[in-house]
């Protein structure tokens, strides 16, 4: 495992634990935690805070009826939750699950860039990006929060270098041009809560077509 330099900020982790994080971002957080021990320990810390709050809540008595019902159901047969798939060396488990345990179906985004949309909806979208070495992800400004997790290769932009496991958090203020390093193609998991607006490379009119 390579050293991960860019981790999940606390507010995002707390929001993930609380369940208030939009689904596209939750997938990126879950994917990063799957391959980052530091953030897994951090996540456990946030869950423990949740536990301390639960412990602290003013108890409100529950009916004997509910108690009897729960104790009476202990022997019931139950369906185990379907097993979640395992991750592979490129795609962490939550991505494999979103892919339906199949390889990504890439669609061209123009020279050197491909994408595979995993989910898109009102809460935003999450996709895989595949960028050939030396190519840039089209320069874009953001309408909201964007999380980009590197799964293979590396990219650099105005803010630094991002390799396997690194998470870039971008918002309205950041206009950046990630360029894939030489070597392996750079594969990223990217989530956004707003349609991306390209400031060059691709006419705005084409955005609905490419869903980016």
């Amino acid at each position: 495992m390579t050293d991960i330099a860019h981790h999940i900020p606390d507010a995002l982790l707390a929001s993930y634990v609380a369940g208030s994080l939009a689904r596209p971002f939750a997938m990126v957080v879950a994917a990063h935690v799957s391959i980052c021990e530091e953030c897994r320990a951090n996540l456990a810390a946030h869950e423990t805070v949740g536990g301390a709050l639960l412990h602290d809540f003013e108890p409100i008595s529950v009916s004997d009826d509910l108690r009897d019902r729960v104790l009476g159901h202990l022997d019931d047969p139950f369906l185990a939750e379907p097993a979640r798939p395992h991750g592979n060396p490129t795609y962490p488990a939550p991505v494999v699950e979103a892919l339906g345990d199949k390889p990504p179906r890439w669609r061209s985004l123009g020279p050197g860039a491909k994408q595979c949309i995993l989910e898109a909806g009102k809460a935003g979208s999450v996709r895989l990006l595949h960028i050939a070495p030396g190519f840039a992800v089209p320069d874009h400004t953001h309408g909201g929060l964007e999380l980009t997790l590197v799964l293979q290769g590396a990219f650099t932009d105005e803010t630094g270098r991002f390799g396997r496991g690194d998470l870039e958090v971008a918002d309205d203020d950041l206009e950046h041009t990630p360029i894939a390093e030489q070597g392996m193609p750079c594969i990223c998991l990217a989530a956004t809560d707003a349609p991306l607006k390209f400031s060059s490379f691709m006419p705005r009119l084409l955005q609905p077509l490419f869903q980016i």
Binding site: A44, E47, T48, G50, A52, L54
Partner: peptide
């Protein structure tokens, strides 16, 4: 790896979601 309250808290949050 986890303390009981935190473990149950997480089950409860997942269920609520």
């Amino acid at each position: 790896r986890a303390e009981v309250s935190g473990w149950i808290f997480q089950i409860a949050r997942n269920r609520q979601i």
